[in-house]
Design a protein around this nucleic acid. Structure first.
Lengths: 253, 253
DNA sequence: CGGGGGTTTGAGTGAGCTCAACTATCGTGG
DNA sequence: CCACGATAGTTGAGCTCACTCAAACCCCCG
């Protein structure tokens, strides 16, 4: 938020490097992709269900969510994206969007033409694989969220969400400690975990009382990483990051 | 089950044609992929969480599920695959599997070496795009399942599951009418919808009493397709099939 | 005819929901 | 500087959907 918005595609390169190895020439090829920069307000739609697009959106700063709306009333958050994420990659190969993409905070994005992405992936096979590796890894995150909703109770869901966001923010270079600064509202946490705001609130109190987290207005800090990991049944393997053990966690099992 | 197991990769081609256009030469290139055939019993593991593989598995007949196990006790079904599905495609780019793949029925599969898949995708750009389009479309199905678990009640979840499986089986050429034959147990439906067997049973009774479906041992028949679609809040757009309107449904909205 | 897997039904329980009020914090304008 | 409204968080009380436990039932098969 306070940090200046990036004016290059560097966050995208940084993101791909979490899961793939890229040569300098390949990195430069990515940085030289034609693109258009834009800033958007909170709640702005990057794309709406049913729309088509000939640009691939890359998130350069801020937070974004994939959402669906149930019968015009309640919204559900399907995924949360951090800076560097290639939120628009699926649109390169699909016709109409099957969900919305909405800004959770003020964001800056880059639009890259589909054709440029396709050409790049054909020229540099390694980049193509890096791009698709990210898509496949996002599928793994979806599966974990399915499991989260299907088999875990309120406390586990919230703890798991906090763990995931913490690890991903750390990997994205947004913070260095096992805890993190995060301005997500309880309403949004409810939308992401299939709960109600009221119950999210009570669940957070529970975690707070057990000394796992502390909350302040617009920020949550993780006090006991191993404890929260246990409470959330969290195993970061599904994120498919390069191995990078966290401080304070003796094991990732 | 009664049908003879395929001995070619034809189901894979048929599957890709649901979402992509392929020339004859491209189809033949796929059919000529090196592969090894195998038959597996119900409950057999195609791959287990944590394992690596250098083959991509294609399902040629039968049904398969992606699963995760919660704390050694209860299994959750993350996705269900029909014949023709490239269940092993994610393994081409990821190291360790983050979930299990298990046979729900006796199945026959083909194992294609990763290298052969990669080479094919490089030689024929169209095929590469068709493969990745399927991966992206599977992501769309994951999102719909997240939404199903997060925002729909028991009746809607079950109805939605039946609608999805019906449409996909029809697209896969397994049946021609809006209803379908399906030997899934209520236990498995419970695992796929995050419910208990008991409640699945009661929910199915509800749908039966309302004349939406009829059940017999090891098969469910859809009697009122528009009714079930409404009950399940089902919109097939997320499957990203080529347009192919169903009989009995005046609109897909 | 007995056993086992799957289905059905009943009765009691509880996690999470709904409704509703209240508090805390912040920004804005008089 | 304070009043006000808006947004987000907190707390209480009652309710309900789906769960748990338990017992039948059905059908197929050996």
């Amino acid at each position: 938020m306070a940090e200046p918005a990036p004016i290059t595609l560097a966050p995208m390169v940084h993101k791909l490097l979490q899961r793939s190895r890229l040569e300098t020439t390949e990195r430069n090829a990515i940085l030289n992709l034609p693109h258009r920069l834009e800033k958007l307000d909170r709640d702005a739609y990057l794309i709406r269900e049913g729309e088509t697009s000939d640009n691939c959106t890359v998130l350069l700063s801020g937070f974004v969510a994939r959402t669906k709306i149930a019968r015009g009333c309640c919204r559900h958050i399907l995924a949360i994206h951090l800076h560097g994420d290639l939120v628009g990659l699926p649109s390169v190969l699909l016709e109409a969007a099957d969900h919305n993409i909405q800004a959770l905070t003020p964001i800056s994005v880059a639009y890259i033409p589909h054709d440029a992405i396709k050409a790049l992936a054909e020229t540099y096979v390694t980049i193509g694989q890096a791009l698709w590796r990210d898509v496949v890894a996002e599928g793994a995150m979806f599966r974990e969220w399915i499991f989260n909703l299907g088999r875990r109770n309120a406390r586990q869901r919230i703890a798991h969400l906090l763990c995931e966001l913490s690890v991903r923010q750390e990997a994205a270079g947004l913070c260095e400690k096992p805890g993190f600064e995060w301005q997500m509202t309880q309403e949004e946490m409810a939308e992401a975990t299939g709960m109600t705001v009221v119950h999210v609130n009570r669940t957070l109190s529970g975690l707070r009382n057990d000394g796992l987290i502390t909350t302040s207005r617009f920020s949550i800090t993780i006090r006991d990483w191993p404890g929260l990991q246990t409470a959330g049944d969290f195993n970061p393997a599904y994120l498919h990051h390069h191995d990078r053990p966290r401080p304070g966690s003796s094991s990732t099992r």
